[in-house]
């Protein structure tokens, strides 16, 4: 019944996050929203590198995530800029996916998951109880590790988002959005003749691009990608990376990846996570050429991980 925990998760419009207000006040009371070094009595390394940005799109302060009693993330502080591709790397279980899921509150769907700290998006707290997760997710799209097209036609897959959000008044308008999204996702040429065939009939890479098309069809500001290429072969991976390259001019993209090469190829900035801590943040080139933290260095050189 491990699935049950997922399904059981609730989106409660009235009280979007039971703990957020409390945490929020606590942070305010303490007067400093930047860093707490000691949480739960554990020794925390300071994050190395440049955390802050001017005019960030997303800004996290003191973000911790708990699964039941287990703490998965410890006091993360991080800014993510506009129109940048931000990569998160680290060994398995370091919390990078969990962190990613905080940005569109996907963690709400897991019943025993608790998020503390503040994540501001364009200056507004996304965990605030007036922030609605549904409208948040319109602004923050997400692509998952395994391609998960709905068991519907390609057209329906892309039209799903615009339709529930009433982005188009007419069927023609909807079709326009679908076509544009597919074009943007670089899938149009491959599927234009079979728009009404099942999305599940596409190849893995195509499916993943379909999921990206589905995401950009609702015009998000941020796209979260959770290891989008891990289930794909190198050719399909190359296509996705190309796509990310073209998308960066319109969107902020956060990508979690296991592949350091991928991170170095596509990202502007990179963060290295280790056992729930954010160890180092910096420009990708810097991180890969000259890591400051010994842990980062160990990981990048392959001694760890």
């Amino acid at each position: 019944m491990k699935k049950e925990e997922h399904i059981m998760g609730k989106i409660e419009p009235a009280i979007p996050f039971p703990n957020s207000r409390f945490v929020h006040q606590q942070t305010l009371k303490r007067g400093r929203a930047i860093r707490s070094d000691q949480i739960a009595g554990q020794e925390i390394q300071e994050t190395v590198g440049e955390i802050r940005l001017d005019d960030p799109r997303l800004s996290c302060r003191d973000v911790s995530v708990f699964y039941g009693d287990k703490q998965a993330l410890r006091g993360i502080n991080l800014d993510i800029g506009r129109h940048e591709v931000f990569a998160m790397i680290g060994p398995s279980g370091c919390g990078k996916s969990t962190f990613l899921r905080c940005f569109n509150r996907m963690n709400d769907t897991i019943s025993n998951c608790r998020v503390t700290g503040t994540i501001m998006m364009d200056g507004r707290d996304i965990n605030h109880n007036e922030t609605d997760p549904v409208s948040l997710r319109v602004r923050v799209g997400m692509v998952f590790q395994k391609p998960n097209p709905f068991p519907k036609s390609i057209w329906e897959n892309v039209a799903f988002g615009p339709r529930i959000h009433h982005l188009a008044k007419t069927k023609e308008g909807l079709h326009e959005i679908v076509v544009k999204s597919l074009q943007q996702a670089g899938l149009w040429d491959e599927v234009k003749d079979r728009l009404h065939q099942a999305g599940l009939g596409l190849s893995g890479g195509q499916q993943q691009r379909l999921c990206i098309a589905r995401t950009i069809a609702i015009h998000p500001e941020v796209i979260l990608m959770d290891e989008p290429c891990s289930a794909l072969d190198p050719i399909a991976t190359g296509k996705i990376e190309e796509l990310i390259n073209t998308l960066r001019k319109d969107y902020t993209i956060c990508i979690v990846t296991h592949s350091m090469q991928q991170a170095s190829r596509i990202s502007d900035r990179t963060a290295y996570f280790h056992l729930g801590n954010l160890v180092e943040v910096g420009e990708t080139k810097k991180i890969f050429i000259n890591p400051l933290h010994p842990l980062t260095e160990d990981y990048i050189t392959g001694r760890l991980g």
Binding site: P13, D132, V134, S135, I164, H165, H166
Partner: peptide, 13 residues
């Protein structure tokens, strides 16, 4: 937008 959202939440309820 907000009105629409309310409607959707009402449908959800």
């Amino acid at each position: 937008m907000n009105k629409q959202l309310k409607k959707r939440y009402a449908a959800d309820l």
